[in-house]
Design a protein around this nucleic acid. Structure first.
Lengths: 150, 150
DNA sequence: CTATATTAGTTCGATATCGAACATTATGGA
DNA sequence: TCCATAATGTTCGATATCGAACTAATATAG
């Protein structure tokens, strides 16, 4: 108001501001539930491979995770060193590689999820679950639109 | 479902997943609207000082931005080098410093906001503004709760 | 079939961020 | 008053991420 910003701008910035803070807080919580040396982004990659299926090319995972290829190269190296994934050449494309989960990777994900949910047990009350449910469809709408028009 | 995760976990992770993607996409858009060498986090600091008033201690800004003190030290150095802020010792507390905006800092914020909103003009339709308005109160509820219980 | 353009992955240098340890200054209780 | 405790800001080393340039392999146009 007093800074002269118009109402549309304040609405849009206000929305993205709330989203940014919630993301930061939830990432911080997740980070504390992960083993030392495992970053939330590493968890996201493993989680994605469990949910969407493994045997994917790094460039596909990078696109899904919204990071650059070089970042993915680095993250996959970390996950491979930890034994959570394997990275093999793609027999069908000499340029490509295929990423596959190991049992240790799947176990890591299960453990991490249990740890996070245990943390949330004391924290997320029914009212908050209801709020999450209420906003989901709109968030998906906005996410899809931003994703398609970036 | 097929991965055996229970429905509460899927709800909670689904919510934070959408929030994370939206945050990433909006940050990427903001980043492209900023001058070279200015990070979205730098914009956030200046924006915060305009909205909440300047003359604050770095540790206060760090708390508001949800980053550590050392990160704030670094970011303030960047902003000072760019001439967007001044950092002076706090006369009332020998340990502290006070951060103040310069005219260049305020101008930078105005320009950045105009640039981002111009980008959003072609992108955010009335339906999306409505969606943002609908979710705001629930997002604020969740943000406050997470913030208080971290 | 060959030359060009595109794609996958990597490497390099730079920046943002973090945790831990540190020096300096305030504050509060004996 | 004086010492223990806390708070502010900084420094250091490590990691995540990015953009740009590079190599190798594939795809496409002529």
């Amino acid at each position: 108001m007093k800074d002269g910003t118009d109402s549309k701008t304040m609405e849009v910035f206000g929305f993205f501001n709330e989203v940014g803070i919630i993301n930061q807080l939830s990432s911080a919580i997740l980070a504390k539930c992960l083993p030392d040396g495992v970053h939330p982004s590493h968890f996201s990659i493993v989680n994605h491979l469990v949910r969407m299926g493994d045997g994917k090319a790094p460039v596909r995972i990078a696109a899904a995770m919204q990071v650059t290829k070089n970042t993915m190269t680095h993250s996959l190296k970390v996950l491979e060193d930890k034994g959570f994934i394997t990275v093999e050449p793609d027999p069908a494309d000499g340029r490509g590689k295929l990423v596959r989960l190991t049992d240790a990777g799947r176990t890591f994900r299960e453990t991490a999820i249990q740890s996070v949910m245990a943390r949330f047990e004391d924290m997320i009350e029914p009212a908050h679950r209801d709020a999450m449910k209420r906003v989901m469809s709109d968030l998906i709408l906005l996410r899809k639109h931003l994703d398609e028009n970036r």
